[in-house]
Write a protein that binds this DNA or RNA. Sequence first.
DNA 1: GAGAGATGGTCAAGTAGCTTGACCATCCCG
DNA 2: CGGGATGGTCAAGCTACTTGACCATCTCTC
Lengths: 148, 148
Amino acid sequence: MQNSEAMALSAALLAVAGGLTQRINEGVVARGFEGLRPAHGFAFARLAPDGATVTDLAAHLGVTKQAASQLVDEIVRKGYAERRVHPLDARARLIVLTERGWACTRAAEEAAAEVVRGWSDVLGEGEVQALREQLGRIAPYGPIRPAW
Amino acid sequence: MQNSEAMALSAALLAVAGGLTQRINEGVVARGFEGLRPAHGFAFARLAPDGATVTDLAAHLGVTKQAASQLVDEIVRKGYAERRVHPLDARARLIVLTERGWACTRAAEEAAAEVVRGWSDVLGEGEVQALREQLGRIAPYGPIRPAW
DNA sequence: GAGAGATGGTCAAGTAGCTTGACCATCCCG
DNA sequence: CGGGATGGTCAAGCTACTTGACCATCTCTC
């Protein structure tokens, strides 16, 4: 594969990723959840299963724990999460989603599903499934949040 | 397709995009071009063919023209581009890449090709070609720079 | 042509999200 | 028990971006 083709693939990938992020965010706003940025979505994804500590979140987002703490301040103030005492470590706080936080997470899922449905209309269901499988195989580990 | 699958696809896509961006940037740095951020790469991509005006660049990057102007200041100061008089409009300046700017662009292409080669090792050349074609079909128009 | 509004660009100041540095509370381990 | 490691916060600073104001030049209409 030539460099120019690699660039075409890269550009398309980044454009799709950017559009997806934007449209998920728009979908979340349209469902009544305001004052949130895409970075919050990445935090919610980490908090969703069982909660997480600030340090966990920082590693997941690829930022300092101070930055993660500020982000938690923000989503707590806006009613999407709350700080609880950690059951196993008195130093730590367990950050968990509130009901509103869960509702917002579901809204993000719906918005994402809506975008993906648009892709199915273009590519067909099978190709989208293949896309999911292929991207899963080349996805790197490490912090989730794209660092640009 | 269920919402959870849409989320899995979205997460994989964003992870791949984030990893790609990071690795291209690392590759560019490794080739001796310092002081550049991913946003500069998106600017170079727009400048590369024939140059562009600050306003063009701003629209392409999805930022204000003031921000684009500052970014141009920076790449001019670092020797990657220069401001020329616009041949058709005395108000405008045509921003064009210097030889160093072109060298950096080629370095980014090489770095991208390197990453894509890694994908070929996992997926096979044919699947990567298919990926390129499919992503090209679902890529949105509008500003290129992912807005998160 | 001549004036009025639109457009390209820059200067200046403010903002938001991140960083580094310092610090305290608690945990873990010899 | 004592000392280092770890979780978290407070404070201050940095930087990429924004909004607002302004000038030069283009373009349209009369």
